[in-house]
Design a protein around this nucleic acid. Structure first.
Lengths: 223, 223
DNA sequence: ATTGCAAGAATGTCAGACAATCTGCTTGAC
DNA sequence: GTCAAGCAGATTGTCTGACATTCTTGCAAT
């Protein structure tokens, strides 16, 4: 039997609930970039005590989802295009590697899961629900990353994607982006299904580059 | 003038001091892998209150330097060889990319700094001070990562290296590892100094692979 | 318009408390 | 003698309340 089968269920603690709730709130753009978070207000809204909140904030700080400046407290960092570019570049590095490995080692069962998630995205892409588009697209990637055979690759990728997830919501709503995204993702899927490592890498690289370009367009059009 | 010139000095807060102290303590192997950390003991040793300590522990948890299981508290995770391997693989990805970029864009001033750090490692390598070897080697890499033009690459790399830093201390003490490491690092330096991207990538890849092999040897010999 | 100051707000940190959970040891049954 | 049940101590999760320090803001004065 597997040696590290983890049967232990993790009790939901206030700290973890709070981290999850705040993370979701940040993703959904509830706070303006640059705006400060007032501890007392958050405590009241979340119905928790200040020590618990502060622990949660430290976790989010380490994830780079918020910044905490001594004596000024937590705030939502304004993500510059420079940093976003840097994140996209590292994402490219990681996703290309993951797609290539995935093509060589994914199991038939997981491949079906990947196909399912692609279908889910297809459905979302034809709708106007940009939140559904982002989440289903994220599912697609996370299956690839989960099957690349390297848990660290997955972990690092998740951390990066978190920071630019709200970019995706905006770029998805660009005219036609969801459809072309779908085509690129289908290409990646086909390559993985065929077990063609090189092609999977190439397709994955193309996809990230286009996503990056779309993110830039959506940012420019906003300024 | 630079737009993000950060003149703000960060006051040293208890939380930050504590994170730094504990991180250093973990690096230096003060705690056995798998051993639990007792909050009350740490509070007494550090002379701080429990809320402050718990905030620091949350930061370290997010860095993956400790694990916190609900109702069992913090402990030092036992780093399996599987995970260590995964980390080395991602390190390879990042360091190769960084070395290649660095070769194309490093400034003469920073190149001199890199040369200096190489000399420092050379001196340490001929001694038996494995701590000095690890720190000077870390300086060498961090200069490369700082000059690759991608701050995210640097940030992610730092997070990974932190988790396996104590491996390096052990593998450096392997017979002859410091000397061969020196040769590999000098090769990387030469390639960067020559501005040869491809060669820098190749040399960097070789270096990580050998470091990984050395880490495995040191781990095997311990079991 | 700029400077300086004072009141208010927010954070950093601590002390103490209590319920829930875990751990180890004693006790009892077979 | 071994194993299970149960109890006491240890430890964590969480809250309340407090206070000094630091930041912010509005107002007055130059």
């Amino acid at each position: 039997m597997p040696t590290d089968l983890n049967l232990r269920i993790s009790p939901r603690t206030v700290q973890r609930e709070t981290v999850d709730k705040l993370r979701l709130a940040i993703f959904s753009g509830m706070f303006q970039p640059g705006s400060r978070l007032i501890e007392s207000q958050l405590c009241a809204q979340l119905g928790i005590s200040r020590p618990s909140l502060r622990e949660a904030l430290r976790s989010l700080e380490a994830e780079r989802l918020i910044e905490i400046v001594p004596n000024r407290g937590p705030s939502i960092p304004a993500l510059s295009w420079e940093v976003a570019t840097a994140i996209y570049e590292v994402r490219e590095l990681l996703e290309v590697e993951a797609a290539g490995r995935c093509a060589l080692r994914i199991s038939p069962g997981q491949l079906r899961e990947l196909e399912k998630s692609l279908s889910a995205f297809e459905e979302a892409a034809s709708s106007n629900d940009s939140l559904a588009q982002v989440t289903t697209a994220a599912d697609f990637y996370s299956i690839i990353l989960a099957n690349c055979g390297n848990p660290i690759l997955e972990e690092v990728h998740r951390g990066l994607v978190a920071r630019i997830s709200f970019f995706r919501g905006r770029s998805m709503s660009l005219e036609g982006r969801a459809q072309s995204s779908l085509a690129e993702m289908r290409e990646i899927f086909e390559c993985i299904a065929a077990g063609d490592e090189k092609a999977a890498r190439k397709a994955s690289k193309q996809h990230v580059l286009k996503a990056k370009a779309a993110a830039k367009r959506s940012m420019d059009s906003e300024v």
